[in-house]
């Protein structure tokens, strides 16, 4: 599966909340770094959770934490709102005093907080600069930049911002930047957009809608869907029917309790298969299936990356 991603510099990961976007995105970044590529994994907004959770070493720039090292090839960073706003002004304004004014002035900072889409825009601006190798804080050029986007609806909104700005303004600094961002973002040869989901009802439905919305509202296509938390099946259909029969006939006790566990397990698997079948019928994309790996932490990331390195994309073309 890695070939699909090895050909793209910018890799965007989205999906419903709670499906494991961050783990899958980070594992993908790690798998690419194992191919000898230099990779940057970006978390955006809110708080960065994975570096702290994984106990990674900080890389400082002055007093601020710039990034964390996963290994010699893979770096993690958190693109935090106030920092990307500053990045934008450093670039757009001619001298530092004006930059300080733009970010510290009370009225202007309220404006940046309130202007529709400004946060999304400056974030994409920084990502574009990182991809180009022209970002002042990340001056290295990365072979791959993997971005852990917001959940579904927010990701659609964010990805549509450069288009929206270009529809409003044709000339001026913001219009030029929006065009530059669009050149990378909306080019499917340079950017891969992937959805992570799990084989359950709501995540599957949301993924199907999400792919459609990305196509209709932003004009971006999803070519690969990562199916996370796929569990192995322990029992056959016939055994499953046998369990149901036993549950009807046995007296309560340890034996029946064990069969009840097995029957519940069976139901979970049937439901998983139902939703796997459903998503494969609904989406004409390539799928990657990832197993459940316990415990959480660094070893999970490494194991998932190994799986990603080994599996070939299953090509499924359905209705």
């Amino acid at each position: 599966m890695l070939r699909h991603f090895l050909q793209r510099q910018l890799i965007l990961v989205t999906g419903k909340g709670g499906v494991g976007k961050t783990s899958c995105g980070l594992s993908l970044a790690y798998a690419l770094s194992e191919q000898g590529k230099k990779v940057l994994f970006c978390e955006i907004g809110g708080r960065a959770s994975s570096p702290i959770f994984l106990g990674l070493t900080e890389v400082k720039q002055g007093a601020a934490v710039l990034s964390w090292k996963f290994n010699s090839k893979l770096t993690l960073t958190h693109l935090e709102t106030s920092a990307v706003i500053q990045d934008y002004f450093r670039d757009a304004l001619p001298y530092e005093r004006l930059v300080r004014f733009a970010t510290n002035n009370k009225i202007l900072s309220r404006l940046w907080a309130a202007a529709p889409s400004f946060n999304e825009f400056v974030l994409l601006n920084s990502i574009e600069k990182i991809c180009q190798g022209t970002h002042p804080r990340f001056d290295e050029r990365y072979d791959h930049v993997v971005v852990d986007l917001h959940a579904s609806g927010h990701a659609v909104t964010m990805l549509g911002v450069p288009k929206g700005i270009n529809r409003i303004a044709k000339f001026g600094a913001i219009a030029e930047r929006a065009t530059a961002i669009g050149k990378i973002l909306y080019d499917s040869r340079r950017t891969a957009l992937t959805i992570v989901t799990i084989p359950e009802e709501l995540p599957v439905q949301e993924s199907v809608e999400l792919k459609q919305r990305l196509q209709d509202e932003v004009g971006m296509s999803v070519e690969c869907v990562i199916l996370n938390l796929i569990r192995e099946r322990h029992f056959s259909e016939k055994e499953g029917t046998g369990f149901e029969r036993l549950l009807g006939s046995m007296n309560e006790g340890s034996g029946k309790a064990l069969i009840r566990l097995a029957a519940t397990e069976m139901k979970h698997r049937q439901r998983q298969e139902h939703w796997l079948g459903r998503i494969k019928d609904c989406l004409a994309v390539r799928f990657v299936e990832l197993p459940v790996i316990i415990p959480v932490g660094r070893s999970r990331i490494e194991k998932l990356a190994t799986v990603m390195g080994e599996v070939t994309l299953t090509q499924e073309w359905g209705g």
């Binding site: 001619p94 002035n105 202007l108 409003i168 000339f171 001026g172 913001i174 219009a175 030029e176």
Partner: peptide, 25 residues
């Protein structure tokens, strides 16, 4: 004076086109 600097920032950082639309908003 403040107003002038704000306008300088806005038109340099965003472009007059966009600022016009934003202002109308």
């Amino acid at each position: 004076r403040t107003g002038k600097v704000i306008w300088e920032v806005l038109s340099k950082a965003l472009g007059a086109d966009f600022v016009d639309e934003l202002l109308e908003f």
